[in-house]
């Protein structure tokens, strides 16, 4: 007799736990406001990354097309993956002295792990992380970027 009571009560308690679970899912289907997913390309306007977001390395240029990179290679050394290559050239200054400036600031986005060590190591705050996250391209070679804009110059006073 005891076994039968136990048998029947086990059925009811089991059903109760099942209904409990269904109440949770039932709550969410009846509250469509709780939906958390978004339609991605459509929400581009409102989709803002946080200021800190580490999207990719950029070399900041001023309006007069000047950057702050002296070509010291500190970032190249700091990078664990060889993401950054600094190619320097020597140009002749108006006063006749030769000076070392960057020719190309090559950035291999495909190798970057966004560890931020290059930015920390930069003595002149020339580079920073941008909030751009849409890196997908069809060709891998497009991921290798030259960060200094054509004909850009070193900003006055930065050394």
């Amino acid at each position: 007799m005891k076994a039968i009571v136990k048998y029947i009560s086990s059925i009811f308690s089991a059903l109760k736990t099942l209904f409990k679970g269904m109440a949770v899912t039932g709550h969410y289907i009846s509250h469509p406001k709780e939906i958390i997913t978004q339609q991605y390309p459509e929400n581009r306007e409102t989709l803002k990354m946080f200021d800190m977001f580490r999207g990719e390395v950029v070399l900041t240029h001023s309006e007069s097309n000047e950057h702050r990179c002296t070509g010291c290679s500190a970032c190249e050394v700091a990078c664990p993956n060889g993401t950054i290559e600094i190619i320097n050239k020597r140009i002749e200054m108006p006063d006749g002295k030769k000076k070392k400036v960057i020719d190309k600031f090559v950035y291999h986005l495909s190798m970057c792990t966004f560890c931020n060590l290059c930015i920390l190591s930069c003595p002149t705050d020339a580079i920073k992380m941008s909030q751009d996250f849409e890196h997908a391209v069809f060709d891998r070679s497009q991921l290798t970027k030259v960060l200094n804009k054509p004909a850009s110059k070193l900003m006055e006073g930065v050394r």
Binding site: T25, Y28, I29, I36, T37
Partner: peptide, 13 residues
């Protein structure tokens, strides 16, 4: 669609 709404998703759109 129903699965999506149970799961706080939008489903196929």
């Amino acid at each position: 669609k129903i699965a999506a709404f149970f799961q706080l998703r939008l489903g196929p759109m």
